[in-house]
């Protein structure tokens, strides 16, 4: 982790997840073996904080770029870090097909239910009834469709070995998230295939809530649409 003033809003979850990744890489002594792919989204500047090799990718093409890197350098740790617009909207094809090819990469998927960087528009993951700048009133299923559960979709793919959904609402959940990230990296080192950790993360700015209300919203509402836990690969020991 580099010493840098944060550009994230107060109460944003990205900073927590950035830090957890750095802790895991340090503990596993992987910093010098890692190439990360940052998305287009609020976390595009991840390389300002991460002290390991990092590239940008075009919006949503993150797993395609990671595929290219990993195939050329199969013994390095390659992971993508993606928001829900990047991964579940514009990059749906790339994430599904990387999983289906069983690409031996890890994906850290930060689901904050909105497009943060562009100003709080609806994401595929926005909940029914949630306010966004592109859903007058709020998200309505009859007009805007339903929250997209990418993890559950990917669970049916044989190339995908491990999927876990976590959050960062309490120290206990933060530890679970860290363990999930660790497990995903271990699976990659063991060359078992594609794995992904989805982190339900707060966006106080575009949820119109304060940081602690945002954490409560995840616990009370978001987890109902996106249940926490291991979605695939539960029997796998780290």
């Amino acid at each position: 982790m580099k010493q840098a003033p944060t550009h994230y809003c107060p109460g944003c979850g990205h900073g927590i997840v950035h830090r957890l990744i750095c802790e895991v890489l340090d503990e596993m002594n992987l910093k010098e073996k890692t190439v990360a792919v940052a998305p287009v989204g609020c976390s595009v500047l991840a390389y300002d904080y991460w002290d390991f090799d990092t590239t940008e990718a075009a919006h949503g093409r993150t797993p395609a770029v990671a595929t290219g890197i990993k195939r050329v350098l199969p013994d390095r740790l390659v992971f993508t870090y993606q928001g829900d617009g990047d991964l579940a909207a514009i990059g749906t094809a790339e994430i599904i097909h990387s999983g289906n090819r069983g690409e031996n990469i890890s994906t850290i998927f930060v689901n904050n239910g909105v497009y943060g960087m562009t100003g709080g528009q609806m994401a595929p993951t926005t909940l029914i009834g949630q306010v966004s700048t592109t859903t007058p009133g709020s998200r309505r299923a009859d007009r805007d469709g339903y929250p997209l559960k990418i993890m559950e979709m990917m669970a049916v793919l044989p190339g995908v070995v491990y999927l876990e959904r976590t959050t960062v609402t309490s120290p206990k959940e933060v530890t679970k998230t860290k363990n999930a990230i660790k497990r995903s990296f271990e699976i990659q080192l063991a060359e078992e295939g594609f794995s992904m950790v989805e982190v339900l993360s707060p966006c106080p700015t575009y949820w119109g809530l304060d940081p602690s209300q945002s954490m409560r919203r995840i616990e009370n509402e978001v987890v109902k649409a996106f249940p926490l836990g291991v979605i695939k690969g539960g029997d796998h020991g780290p």
Partner: peptide, 19 residues
């Protein structure tokens, strides 16, 4: 790699070049 689209192919090439 036979990619899922030309978008993906050119971005895989981006990644391979990065590496």
């Amino acid at each position: 790699i036979q990619s899922e689209s030309e978008l993906s192919a050119v971005n895989m090439v981006f990644g391979a070049a990065v590496a």
